[in-house]
Design a protein around this nucleic acid. Structure first.
Length: 296
DNA sequence: TTCATTTGACCGAG
DNA sequence: CTCGGTCAAATGAA
């Protein structure tokens, strides 16, 4: 991946964050208006997500050619880990989500998820009769290379306001060698990873880390999360002049997720941290919009 | 030329 | 038979 696509990704993330911020602002301007099923919390969360992603991308070091995986390091969280599945027949593999809720995970978003930390390849699209909407089918780009069975499909389930539901199936088995320098090649054990994930939290990125516990996010990825976190601490200090609460905010156990999605079975939570980020949003959205992330 | 997406066909479940 | 999931040839972009 070249610098341009990096830049493009960052721009996309920022633009998406901007659109979410606008929606949130409209909602704040007119709290009585019907804001639809997407909560303000979710909007704020999306905003933090996007800007965190942009920061991660822009602060990324120049990479080697083989940075398909390293790209993941600056990505949002992989979906949480459904339990390993038996191998499927080549043909039809239907997962009954009503009887096997643990075999899938879904996320509702006001916009299509074009960037969720994995590389996906579209393999089909169908008009779903029930909802009269198109559903797109994706599988992991490393489906062949790494025999990765992760799949997802994305469907617009509501029009006004738009709500897109992304449903993930299977788990990624392609998560190897995500680091750039080759210094770490082992895939983290999900349990150990979960433990370590609890130690690294940053805005929405904590979600990423939490959700990553099944996907073998590499140590180098975590290192980047740490860097981002440090930056956020600085930003917090700049804004509030408070040295103590920041650490508190960043380290406190956090609680979980917005309605409408199916969170991973994580023990930690992120509400406090999100609340902190959201507070900044609510207090002064304009200044947030213009907030200098050091990306110049 | 390579690779990702599109799209109609095919298949299995109900 | 209908419906939803997948396959694979055709197509298009880089």
């Amino acid at each position: 991946m070249n610098m341009n696509s990096h830049h493009e990704k960052a721009v996309q993330a920022i633009m998406y964050g901007h659109s979410c911020a606008m929606r949130l602002k409209l909602r704040l301007d007119d709290p009585m208006a019907d804001g639809g099923p997407v909560s303000s919390y979710d909007l704020a969360k999306s905003i933090v997500d996007c800007f965190s992603n942009a920061i991660s991308i822009l602060t990324d070091k120049p990479k080697s050619e083989d940075d398909q995986f390293s790209d993941l390091s600056s990505s949002p969280p992989p979906p949480p880990p459904p339990p390993p599945q038996e191998s499927h027949s080549k043909k039809k593999r239907k997962i009954d989500i009503t009887t096997n809720p643990s075999e899938y995970w879904r996320d509702d978003s006001p916009d299509p998820i074009y960037y969720d930390g994995y590389l996906w390849r579209k393999y089909g699209q169908k008009c779903i009769k029930k909802s009269n909407q198109q559903r797109s089918y994706y599988r992991c780009s490393y489906n062949k290379d790494h025999n990765c069975e992760a799949r997802k499909h994305e469907q617009k389930i509501k029009d006004n306001p738009p709500v897109y539901r992304t449903t993930y199936f299977g788990h990624h088995t392609c998560n190897i060698n995500h680091n750039q320098d080759g210094s770490f090649t082992a895939v983290l054990d999900p349990v150990d990873d979960l433990k370590s994930a609890n130690m690294i939290r940053f805005g929405n990125d904590l979600d990423y880390v939490k959700k990553s516990h099944s996907t073998g996010l590499s140590l180098s990825v975590k290192h980047e999360e740490d860097l981002i976190r440090e930056k956020t601490v600085d930003q917090y200090r700049e804004i509030t002049g408070d040295d103590q609460d920041c650490q508190h905010v960043m380290e406190e156990d956090l609680s979980s997720s917005p309605s409408g999605s199916y969170p991973p079975p994580s023990s930690s939570s992120d509400s406090d941290c999100i609340a902190f980020m959201s507070d900044m949003l609510f207090e002064d959205l304009d200044s947030w919009d213009q907030f200098d992330f050091g990306m110049h």
